[in-house]
Design a binder for these strands. Structure first.
Lengths: 156, 156
DNA sequence: GTAATGTACATGAAAAATCATATATATTGT
DNA sequence: ACAATATATATGATTTTTCATGTACATTAC
């Protein structure tokens, strides 16, 4: 039908898929009183507690100074806490609190339900291919982060 | 290795891929003096000249009031122009100018080269699967826009 | 040990994006 | 025709995000 540049341009296709489905879920988040950036910070901390701020920024796909501010807000809400590193006194490792976990856990269930509804539009083999290909593509981001990966969390 | 929630969460995988590759290309854009939002507006107008502002907003994945402001800037730079619709005097159809086309055309070549470099990391079949699956996923966004699609551009 | 350089995080001013709402025009129902 | 409702875009205040840079600590090279 259409032969537009955009419809076949990978970066746009990825942005479109990401945007469409993220916005759907963000509506659910906002209904629960959690902003999308806070959700991103919290699930990353859930997966990897004690991450240093800079590592957290790279994983959450936000700028460092923005993460500083987001984390400070979350500290104010007692959803996360900062701990100074013994090994390197410049570093701050960020931990999700019990209150943070309590907030995030039901949202993870919602996220999984929503994800299932997205994948329901695809065949079983398409689903497998999609996740497998996305994992391959993710390696390009992982390469950019090698240095950060070496020292991700505080190992007291 | 890792069994983290995030690494297997579709919305995060999509956001990661979109973010990683978009940022790569945005560096090239900025080097050419074009901000990412302006690029998004301009290629959408290239594909579909004369789109109404609201339709443009939906295709470019931006909020309406933001597109109003972006378009006004682009008008200031003589890269696009606004034309009042005869059929509906509330509507404004936006057209890319020759100057806008001249700016955007070489960037499209760069975008295609960059896209090839991204796809180079995948096998031929993976590439086919990826684009085909992304097109299927795009239908969910298209559904949200049915109404807009009915009246997209000014048909003088 | 000390100077030079590099890295982690914080901060404040500036720029961009969002949100609520205003204005103008269209459409619908009576 | 008129009122009520809906839609398209614009606007201004507020909030968010970015950018440049500051401060403190670490590391390297001499």
């Amino acid at each position: 039908m259409s032969e537009k540049f955009i419809d076949n341009y990978l970066l746009f296709q990825l942005a479109l898929a990401s945007h469409t489905f993220s916005e759907e879920f963000y509506d659910q988040l906002r209904a629960a009183g959690v902003s999308p950036p806070k959700w991103r910070i919290l699930i990353n901390l859930m997966d990897c507690p004690g991450m240093y701020l800079t590592a957290l920024a790279k994983y959450a796909l936000y700028e460092q100074s923005r993460v500083t501010k987001l984390v400070d807000q979350l500290v104010g809400e007692k959803l996360v806490e900062k701990r100074a590193s013994q090994q390197d006194r410049r570093r701050v490792s960020i931990h999700i609190t019990d209150k943070g976990l309590a907030l995030v856990k039901p949202l993870i269930v919602q996220a999984q339900i929503h994800e299932a509804s997205v994948l329901a539009g695809l065949t079983q083999t398409d689903r497998k291919h999609l996740k497998s290909i996305l994992r391959k593509l993710a390696k390009r981001h992982a390469e950019d982060m090698q240095v950060v990966n070496l020292k991700l969390v505080d190992t007291v």
